[in-house]
C-alpha cells in the first residue's frame, strides 16, 4: 500500500506539472490513451503511465498489455530526457524497448521540454518583484550548492586517492579489470588443458 501511496503522490506531481506548464502535454495529444509501461530494473517494478487528454494516470504493479514497454535502470531512465539518446541506449543494451518507439520518444520529448515558469506562478501570491527575487535566489542557491558539491567531491576524491591511499584511480580500476579478465581467460585455458590431459 505504501508503494501505491507513493505512486498516487507521483501522479499528483505529474498532474501538477500539467497545470504549471501549459505546453507540457501538447506533444502527448498525439499519443493520448496509449499506455507506456516502464520497468525499473533496480526495483523490479513495472509502472504504467497514460495520458488521457485531461490528466496523467500512473499505476504500479502493472501486468496488463501496453503499447510500449521499456525496461531500464534508474540511472538510464534519467538519460532518457534526450529523445536522441534512445537508440544509443538500446544499442548499449542499457535499455530494452518493445512496442511503439514513437510513444517512448514522445514522452521523452515532452518531459525534456518541461519548463515551469515558477516566477509567473508564484507572482500570484508574492507579487511580480517578490516572486522574481525568490526564484533568482533559489537558482543562485542551487548553483552554489552544485559547485560546492563538485568541489567537495573532487577534494574527497583527491584525499582518498592521493593522500590517504584508501581508494584507487579509475584508470587503475580499468587496468585491474583487464588483468582479471586476462587471468580468467588463462584459468579457463588451463582448465581445458587439464581436462584434455585427464581425458587421455
Amino acid at each position: 500500500m505504501i508503494k501505491t501511496l507513493l505512486v498516487a503522490a507521483a501522479e499528483r506531481v505529474l498532474n501538477g506539472a500539467l497545470n504549471l506548464d501549459p505546453h507540457f502535454a501538447a506533444p502527448l495529444k498525439k499519443v493520448q490513451h496509449k499506455v507506456l509501461a516502464i520497468e525499473i530494473r533496480d526495483w523490479q517494478q513495472t509502472f504504467a503511465l497514460t495520458y488521457t487528454g485531461q490528466s496523467f494516470m500512473l499505476f504500479n504493479n502493472f501486468q496488463e498489455q501496453s503499447d510500449c514497454h521499456i525496461s531500464a535502470s534508474i540511472a538510464t531512465l534519467s538519460e532518457l530526457k534526450e529523445p536522441s539518446q534512445l537508440t544509443r541506449l538500446i544499442r548499449q543494451e542499457k535499455l530494452d524497448l518493445e512496442g511503439d518507439l514513437h510513444l517512448a520518444q514522445t514522452y521523452s520529448q515532452s518531459f525534456s521540454n518541461l519548463d515551469i515558469d515558477w516566477a509567473e506562478h508564484l507572482s500570484e501570491y508574492l507579487g511580480d518583484a517578490g516572486a522574481q527575487q525568490l526564484v533568482q535566489q533559489i537558482k543562485h542557491v542551487i548553483t552554489r550548492t552544485k559547485k560546492a558539491d563538485s568541489i567537495l567531491s573532487n577534494t574527497t576524491q583527491e584525499l582518498c586517492q592521493d593522500e590517504l591511499k584508501v581508494t584507487i584511480h579509475p584508470l587503475e580500476m580499468t587496468q585491474f579489470k583487464a588483468h582479471t579478465r586476462e587471468l580468467k581467460q588463462h584459468a579457463a585455458q588451463l582448465e581445458q588443458r587439464i581436462n584434455q590431459l585427464l581425458a587421455r
Binding site: M1, T4, L5, V7, A8, A48, M57, F59, N60, N61, F62, Q63, E64
Partner: peptide
Amino acid sequence: LWKRQAIAC
C-alpha cells in the same frame, strides 16, 4: 488506494 489498485488491474 484500494480503488487505485482495482483500476490498475
